[in-house]
Simulated scan of single mutants.
Amino acid sequence: MEINKDIELKKLGEKIKAVRKRLCLTQFDLGVRIDKDQQSISRLEAGEINPSYIYLMEICKGLEVELKDIL
């Protein structure tokens, strides 16, 4: 089974964005919560970067969700 990295990163970004919007947070707000800039959050949500496990854990902390909720 072949995994299309671009598609999977886009799906991950969309899930993160959906949770963020559900919490009525802007990209800037989330960035402040986890000490990242808005551009970094934007690139993550657009599927332009492959986040590390630690980065994903920081995102989860900022969104107050578990990792399984965004994967």
Rank of each mutant, 00 (worst) to 15 (best):
L12Q: 06
I41Q: 03
P51C: 12
K11T: 11
V19A: 07
R43M: 13
L25Y: 06
F28I: 09
A18T: 07
Y53N: 13
S42C: 13
K21P: 02
D37N: 15
L23R: 05
S42E: 08
L30T: 02
T26P: 09
E14L: 07
R43K: 15
R22N: 12
K21Y: 04
R20K: 04
S40K: 10
T26N: 03
Q27T: 00
F28R: 14
C24K: 14
S42N: 08
L44K: 00
I34Q: 01
L44P: 06
L12F: 03
K17H: 04
F28N: 12
Q39S: 15
D29R: 03
A46Y: 02
A18S: 11
K17C: 01
A18L: 10
L44C: 11
R33Y: 06
L12E: 10
Y53C: 14
L12I: 05
Q27M: 05
L30D: 01
T26K: 13
K10I: 08
K11Y: 05
Q38C: 07
L12Y: 04
K15R: 15
V32F: 10
I34T: 02
A46L: 15
L25K: 04
C24P: 04
T26W: 08
K36T: 07
Q39Y: 06
R20P: 01
E14T: 10
L12D: 06
C24A: 10
F28D: 14
E48Y: 03
Q38F: 08
S42V: 03
E45W: 06
A46S: 13
Q39T: 13
Y53H: 13
R43H: 15
R33D: 05
Q27V: 00
K11E: 12
V19C: 06
V19N: 05
K36Y: 14
E45H: 03
T26C: 07
I49H: 10
Q39I: 09
D35A: 12
R33N: 05
P51K: 11
R22V: 04
V32H: 07
L23D: 11
R43G: 08
C24L: 10
E14K: 14
K10L: 08
I16M: 01
R43V: 07
V19F: 00
L25T: 06
L12T: 02
K15S: 10
N50M: 08
